[in-house]
Each structure stands twice: as structure tokens, then as C-alpha cells.
């Protein structure tokens, strides 16, 4: 790896020379869910500190972590935002490229909400409803059959006879994974379908779980590969549509959307931080510890990000829709002491 070596040596030069490093701003990339939060913090950091405002790029958790693991040095990013924890193989890729010391910082939680056009019917869902509405196959009278449901009333007699039409995040989104695991799979278990599949396929649990989260492909469930603004546009055009959103997006568009309850709980910052609302996920950012001494302002930025003023329950991030972490104090210590994973 001659190439990696040159990178490393130029980087070392940069560390020795101290201030005359080629980059004096913090460079961040990753999850589009974390992006607005990171941008809010970057903006506040730029106006309150003498360091330049960090540059925040979007592109998704996976692409951010991939760039994070490209190596050390000036032309690699310092921080990767992620809406899911880092995977084993990503850590392995990082190690292979020389990025061995990584600080994992959990900034809070993000709720995933189900919302429909404000002029349409109100809904209260359970995971089973979503499984019965969207799964490719469902359990009827002890046998798995291709999903016949066409209206919400067929799914659950308590709901209005509104045609099924849903807009769920595409597979490249971190939100999709949470939706599959915490809604569809839970519905699969609750309706007994998982058990039936396992019994039929000879006890292969992994395969059964994959079968559970396979969504129907007859146009009732539409994958949105863009962002939430696209989902919102679809719902505004189609009053029967129900979309999957991040809590922060919904909170910024409450005049157009009405939110559905999940298992009887209304999603909001309080119910999510209390752990009552079932569909949520932690948000993270990852710091390259080796960059802390080299990139000016990196440590200050990380500390500012997790400070009570910013990430606390009364801070601007909570106001925007982040569910603040009850263990924020531990995170602050972790950043201050630069404790790597």
C-alpha cells in the first residue's frame, strides 16, 4: 500500500507543521437524517467560535462511512454522520485503511412517524396493521397466501375503507431498515406469520425474517428513493396516501400532515424519549481520533455538538425534532476524554 503510505506521511508532515495544514475547517459527511442537525450545529459553531464553519455534506450513512474509512489525512473527512451504528465490515474497512481510533458519539434519537394528508382520515396503527397491509404474503387460516388486502378496512375492521396506498423510504435509506425491523417484522411476529414461515421452511429463522419483510410489489407500497419532500409531494397529490417520515420533518410540516398513532402512542419528543413510542432509532456521528490534534476546531466542534446548550432537551436540536439523549452527560465525558471504540 504505497499509496496509503504517502498519504500517511504527508499527513504526518501536516501534523508536525501544526498550523500550516492545508485544511483549517472541519469536514463532515453522511446521513441525510443527521444533516439538518449537523448544519444547525455547524452554523452555531461558526458564529460563536473563531474557527471557520464546518462543511457538512449529505449522501447517506453508508456513503459517509465509506468515505470516513478511506484513510487518514487532509483530503478525507473528519466526521461521519450516521443514522445507524457502524457495521462490523465498515470497522474492518476502516482498520485496513489505518483509521483505527474512532470515537462513537450518540447525539440522540429520531422518531419515525406515519403521517397522512391533513384533510383525510385519521389513523391509529399497530405494527400488525402495517404487516397485513404491506407484506408480500400474510397468514390466513393457517396458510401463507399472497396479500389480498386492498383497503385499510380489510386490514383492520376498525379503520376506514380507504384504499391502501403507502410511500415508504427506499432501500438505500437507513429509515427503511428501522421500518422493516421495528414495524413490519414486529407485525409479522404478532400475526403469527413468522412462526408459520419457520414451521414451513424447516426452522431457518434468518430466511423467515427476510420473507417477513418482503413488501408487496403490486404498486400499493411505493418506494421513495428521494427524500421526505418527495413523500410529502406524493401525499399532497394523493389524499389516500400514507407516508413514512422522520419526526423532525413532520414537525416542520404540521399544517399539511396529520400523524398517526402507533400502538396507541402519539409520536412526539416526550413519548419517544420516554421509550413509549416504539419506532425510533439512535443517531450517531463518528470522529477520527487521529484528526483531533491536526484539524483545528474538531474537538471544540464535537464538544459543542453534545453540549447541553445544543443537544440538551431545551436546545435548538430538540426544537427541530431531535429526541435528546437521556445519557447526554456520559456522551459529553466520552468526547472530552476522547474515548475510542
Amino acid at each position: 500500500m504505497a499509496f496509503a503510505k504517502t498519504t500517511l506521511s504527508t499527513f504526518a508532515l501536516c501534523a508536525v507543521a501544526g498550523a500550516s495544514c492545508a485544511r483549517d475547517n472541519v469536514q463532515i459527511a453522511g446521513s441525510s437524517t443527521v444533516l439538518p442537525y449537523a448544519a444547525i450545529v455547524a452554523e452555531a459553531f461558526g458564529e460563536n467560535f473563531d474557527f471557520p464553519t464546518p462543511v457538512v455534506e449529505s449522501g447517506g450513512s453508508s456513503s459517509g462511512l465509506k468515505r470516513f474509512c478511506e484513510g487518514l489525512g487532509d483530503n478525507t473527512i473528519d466526521i461521519a454522520n450516521a443514522s445507524r451504528p457502524m457495521k462490523e465490515r465498515e470497522i474492518a474497512a476502516c482498520t485496513a485503511a489505518g483509521v483505527t481510533e474512532i470515537i462513537e458519539v450518540r447525539i440522540g434519537y429520531d422518531g419515525i412517524v406515519f403521517a397522512s394528508n391533513i384533510e383525510g382520515n385519521a389513523f391509529s396503527f399497530t405494527p400488525s396493521d402495517w404487516f397485513l397491509a404491506l407484506s408480500d404474503t400474510i397468514l390466513v387460516d393457517g396458510a401463507m397466501i399472497s396479500n389480498p388486502n386492498m383497503t385499510w378496512a380489510e386490514v383492520n375492521a376498525a379503520m376506514p375503507a380507504q384504499p391502501l396506498q403507502t410511500f415508504v423510504p427506499g432501500t438505500k435509506h437507513g429509515t427503511r431498515e428501522v421500518f422493516e425491523e421495528q414495524v413490519i417484522l414486529q407485525g409479522c411476529i404478532a400475526t403469527g406469520a413468522l412462526e408459520a414461515i419457520v414451521a414451513a421452511n424447516g426452522g431457518d429463522m434468518n430466511q423467515a425474517e427476510n420473507d417477513c419483510i418482503a413488501l408487496r410489489t403490486d404498486g400499493i407500497s411505493v418506494d421513495i428513493d428521494g427524500d421526505y419532500t418527495e413523500t410529502l409531494a406524493r401525499i399532497e397529490a394523493n389524499p389516500d396516501g400514507i407516508g413514512v417520515f422522520g419526526l423532525a420533518f413532520y414537525e416542520n410540516n404540521t399544517n399539511k400532515l396529520q400523524v398517526a398513532t402507533m400502538s396507541g402512542v402519539v409520536p412526539n419528543v416526550e413519548s419517544i424519549s420516554a421509550g413509549e413510542y416504539p419506532v425510533s432509532r439512535p443517531l450517531y456521528f463518528y470522529i477520527k481520533a487521529a484528526h483531533l490534534d491536526v484539524i483545528p476546531g474538531l474537538k471544540e466542534f464535537a464538544e459543542f455538538f453534545v453540549s447541553d446548550d445544543i443537544s440538551g432537551p431545551d436546545g435548538p436540536l430538540a426544537e427541530y425534532g431531535l429526541v435528546s439523549d437521556p445519557e447526554l452527560e456520559a456522551t459529553q465525558d466520552l468526547v472530552a476524554d476522547e474515548i475510542t471504540k
Binding site: 500550516s20 495544514c21 492545508a22 459527511a29 449537523a38 448544519a39 452554523e43 461558526g46 462543511v55 457538512v56
Partner: peptide, 23 residues
């Protein structure tokens, strides 16, 4: 990496980042 949140005006030339080198 140009689809980014950038708030600092880029300088045309700086001794650190060279010609047109700022984000």
C-alpha cells in the same frame, strides 16, 4: 463533495489551500 452546507466564503487564493482550494 460540493453538495454541502458551506457558510464560509471561499477565498480565491490562500497560502494554505492554494488557488480555488477552499470548500
Amino acid at each position: 463533495g460540493m453538495v454541502a452546507f458551506v457558510r464560509e466564503y471561499p477565498a480565491a487564493f490562500t497560502s494554505d489551500s492554494g488557488l480555488f482550494g477552499e470548500a
